[in-house]
Amino acid sequence: MGLLAVAVVGTDRSALIPEVSGVLARAGTEICEASMTLLGGYAVMMLLVSGGPSAEELRGRVALVPGVLSAVVGLPEHGSDSVLPAASQEEFELSGDPRGLPYVLTAHGPARSGVLAAVGEVIAEVGGHITALSVRRGGRLHAMVADLRIPGYVDVAHLMRTLTATCADLGSEISFRPAREEIV
């Protein structure tokens, strides 16, 4: 069975999450994955649900939650296709884990458009992948933290220099460090 993606934006209030999740439960759906955060003072929820009614019917039910804007779309079923480039045995031995190595990038500086685009371009150029991202503002400060996967063959020192120069052009400082990922 396919999944439905439910996006909800609403004024932050204590009843919002129980109201939205209550609608989904009464519709017979199961919440498979969900994320909620506050952006600009608004509660923003993204959920993947399975089961229950059609996207159109669920859209109508969620729309009845007061004070929210929402969207519900059906997602096609997907198999085991990978977004990772195919790697030969030789490349695997050279580069290690084909998912790449985990890093965390922080960039902070004055609020300025283009920082994320510039950083994203540098990461993509070396075959890296941004797997999670938070961008926040605190006063005049613009802070971005990204989880990255960088292929093992990448010259990380060169990448750091490129990111530092790219962000410096936009008035931002960066720190780039291996992620703590201890799976034991």
């Binding site: 934006v9 609403g10 004024t11 932050d12 506050l38 600009g40 003072g41 608004y42 729309a63 004070g67 929210v68 804007l69 965390v104 922080t106 902070h108 999670a132 991202l133 938070s134 926040r136 605190g138 802070a143 933290v145 990204a146 989880d147 400082e173 720190s175 992620a179 703590r180």
Partner: peptide, 27 residues
């Protein structure tokens, strides 16, 4: 260095909840 330079992952950056009411959304 700021603490921002030591944040462990993207989901570990948090706004301080101010409890400020944002304007109501209208469809």
């Amino acid at each position: 260095l700021l603490f921002l330079d030591r944040i462990v992952e993207a989901s570990a950056l948090h706004p301080v909840w101010q409890g400020l009411a944002a304007p109501a959304l209208t469809r």
